[in-house]
Design a binder for these strands. Structure first.
Length: 202
DNA sequence: AGATAGATGGAT
DNA sequence: TCCATCTATCTG
């Protein structure tokens, strides 16, 4: 296993499948929640019309243009936060959206944040649910994931390439066929695929 | 200045 | 299928 920093410095489509099985932790006053990442999507910046960074830097996406290993969070649909790991060389706005994970530490705290009714496998199923379970939001944007900070990304169990499936990304209306979504095959914590209603017909 | 689409999720 | 409901970005 290469150093995390080195691995993350490649472009998103290359990094994304390798993040499966890694762990993301967030420690707050309330405690620590850790998830094992089970589903991701790659966004390739300037080369990718579906990326937030496609039209260049802005106040929202500026952290994507920085070095790899930092957290990019954004607010969407008026109510949801989503979390990305910035990848690629400094200056290139490559990022991996964390779509789903399995809570392996702090499930009780995650239930507190998500609501007591949700099934265990759904605690971090879907990008906004994952962000909510981990309490990732505005304040965590730009956090260094590779240090000793409150949010940490660490290599986890090794995933066999045969256990990974690739397919089209979810919820986007452009580049809807590009197979840059990666997940652990048959994992119950992976979100169900829904094509964007705005995506062009096949 | 105003419009609108959007890397969603949950209820209906 | 629709709704909640905010922000970045595009259009005029």
């Amino acid at each position: 296993m290469a150093e995390p920093q080195q691995l993350l410095s490649r472009r998103a489509p290359q990094v994304a499948p390798k993040l499966l099985g890694w762990t993301l932790s967030h420690t707050t006053e309330a405690g620590t929640v850790t998830v094992e990442i089970t589903e991701v999507e790659a966004y390739a910046g300037a080369a990718d019309p579906a990326s937030h960074a496609y039209r260049g830097p802005s106040p929202r996406n500026e952290v994507m243009f920085g070095p790899a290993g930092f957290l990019y969070t954004y607010f969407t649909y008026g109510m949801h936060w989503c979390a990305n790991v910035v990848t690629g060389p400094d200056g290139e706005a490559s990022a991996v959206l964390l779509r789903a994970g399995r809570v392996i530490e702090g499930a009780e705290l995650a239930w507190l944040r998500r609501g007591a009714k949700v099934a265990e496998r759904s605690l971090a199923r879907g990008p906004a649910c994952l962000a909510q379970a981990l309490a990732l939001g505005k304040d965590q944007n730009g956090a260094n994931l590779l240090g000793k900070g409150e949010v940490r990304l660490e290599p986890g169990r090794r995933i066999k390439p045969a256990a990974i499936t690739a397919g089209p990304r979810v919820g986007i209306s452009v580049a809807a066929e590009t197979p840059w979504r990666f997940w652990l095959t048959d994992d119950p914590t992976v979100s169900t695929y829904k094509r964007s209603p705005r995506a062009p017909a096949l």
